[in-house]
Computed example of a mutant assay.
Amino acid sequence: MQESLKDKIIAVCNKKIAAKGDQVGVSFYAFFKNENDNPEVLMEVAEWWIKTHRLNHFEKAIKIKNIINGIPT
């Protein structure tokens, strides 16, 4: 996954955790606008989320950050 995308995912997770606490959940759609303006990147994240890591639709933001940072979950 692109470093810029990883940085964006971490930033979104940090923002959600700051607003709602470390038990807040996210879906991969949280990293995109409510429009499909970049389907290639959306599919890249969807594949990473669903195929590579076999994550549920909603996961804890802290878990996603840990996976991105290479910390075992």
Rank of each mutant, 00 (worst) to 15 (best):
Q2Y: 01
Q2S: 10
Q2W: 01
E3F: 00
S4F: 03
S4V: 07
S4G: 08
S4L: 04
L5R: 05
L5I: 11
K6Y: 01
D7S: 06
D7P: 00
D7T: 13
D7Y: 00
K8F: 01
K8W: 06
I9T: 02
I9S: 00
A11E: 15
A11V: 12
A11I: 13
V12P: 10
V12H: 07
C13Y: 08
C13E: 11
C13P: 00
C13D: 10
N14Q: 09
N14C: 07
K15A: 14
K15Q: 15
I17E: 11
I17K: 05
I17M: 12
A18T: 06
A18G: 14
A18C: 03
A18F: 01
A19R: 10
A19N: 10
A19I: 03
A19L: 08
A19S: 08
K20Q: 09
K20V: 08
K20N: 15
G21W: 14
G21Y: 13
D22T: 13
D22N: 10
Q23D: 15
Q23M: 15
Q23V: 13
V24K: 14
V24F: 07
V24H: 12
G25P: 01
V26T: 12
V26C: 07
F28S: 07
F28T: 12
Y29A: 14
Y29R: 08
A30Y: 10
A30L: 05
F31E: 11
F32N: 05
K33H: 15
K33G: 08
K33E: 15
N34V: 06
N34R: 04
N34M: 02
E35D: 08
E35I: 07
E35K: 04
E35T: 11
N36M: 05
N36R: 12
D37N: 10
N38Q: 08
N38E: 13
P39S: 03
P39M: 02
P39K: 02
L42Y: 05
L42M: 03
L42I: 02
M43L: 05
E44D: 06
V45T: 07
V45F: 02
A46C: 01
A46F: 00
E47T: 03
W48N: 01
W49M: 03
W49N: 09
I50G: 03
I50Y: 06
I50W: 04
K51P: 00
K51D: 04
K51E: 07
H53P: 09
H53F: 02
H53A: 09
H53G: 09
R54H: 07
R54S: 12
R54M: 08
H57R: 05
H57V: 13
F58A: 12
F58E: 13
F58R: 02
F58N: 12
F58I: 10
E59C: 08
K60T: 05
A61H: 10
A61G: 06
A61N: 14
I62N: 03
I62R: 12
I62C: 04
I62M: 04
K63G: 08
K63Y: 00
I64W: 03
I64E: 04
K65N: 07
N66C: 15
I67F: 01
I67K: 06
I67R: 05
I67W: 04
N69K: 14
G70Q: 11
G70E: 10
G70Y: 11
I71E: 13
I71Y: 11
P72K: 11
P72M: 06
P72C: 06
P72T: 13
P72E: 14
T73E: 15
T73L: 13
T73D: 14
